[in-house]
Nucleic acid binder design. Sequence first.
DNA 1: TGTAATTATATGATATATCAATTATATTTA
DNA 2: TAAATATAATTGATATATCATATAATTACA
Lengths: 149, 149
Amino acid sequence: MDFTLPRNTIFYELERTIKLYRKLSQDHIDQTGYDVSVNQLILLIQIVKNPKLTQVELSEVIFKDFASIARMVDLLVKKDFLKRTENPKDRRKKDLIPTPKGIKMVNELVPVINNYRALALKGIDPDEVAKTLKLLETLADNCITNFKD
Amino acid sequence: MDFTLPRNTIFYELERTIKLYRKLSQDHIDQTGYDVSVNQLILLIQIVKNPKLTQVELSEVIFKDFASIARMVDLLVKKDFLKRTENPKDRRKKDLIPTPKGIKMVNELVPVINNYRALALKGIDPDEVAKTLKLLETLADNCITNFKD
DNA sequence: TGTAATTATATGATATATCAATTATATTTA
DNA sequence: TAAATATAATTGATATATCATATAATTACA
């Protein structure tokens, strides 16, 4: 059987790296004492930056299923970082309004994110990052064009 | 607030690429008619290749939590791709024995995996892949050395 | 040798992911 | 305008992930 061990493929290394990066991110967020997941935080930041976006649009911005967005919104609402009210003009839509508590958290945590992003890229040549970005985009395009359904 | 949109960072592109690659993988597996997830399949392949590995060792090979392994083993057993029996020498351990059905599937699906891996990398210079691998390893190392706990 | 520490696996809680189906509302179009 | 279609959000089912804890068995060591 001719099969390359996962750990010798770029696919494995992608999975491994992103997993470690997620851990780094959550770790630094946790250290601040805030009870929020990285994904919840990233979603909330997008809402703060652009309160007009619908959940469907948000799902495109952060590249997640809209069902996931609905559940993350639920959690942000439960934690009082966000309010969800009916949009008066289009009652299918919900207006997502960050609470003062949510805005305060975003303001405090954006520098934390910028910090761990920099830590993750420490010692890496920006030109190499740009090349990697290009490669990843090609890989992603290849995936899209080769779906069978 | 100075915050780079997710989609302009390498971190976002990593998440996006790996998500599209997972979809490509599952799509090609599904097309074969087999009822198995990519992760279950990758795990089963490792077991076929090395039936002596414990679940803890398997979790290192495919870089997943051992709790995840236990649950994936459960599912493989339920689907009759795998048998789990007590190890007579160390009764904490479980021997994981692929069933004939499991072995047949692995033999049929390994070429499918090799095929979609090649599709994903089509048109990409192997030297660039090697460079990207190095960058990802550095990024992963940076994450590991910057955990706060 | 008996107790402590370690190891292997399993499981509960929670978060996230996808897909499919549902509900409600808006929009299109025949 | 009524019926068909599209859109926005929610929810259920299932898979996976992590973390913490539990259980059982083995190994280390005082």
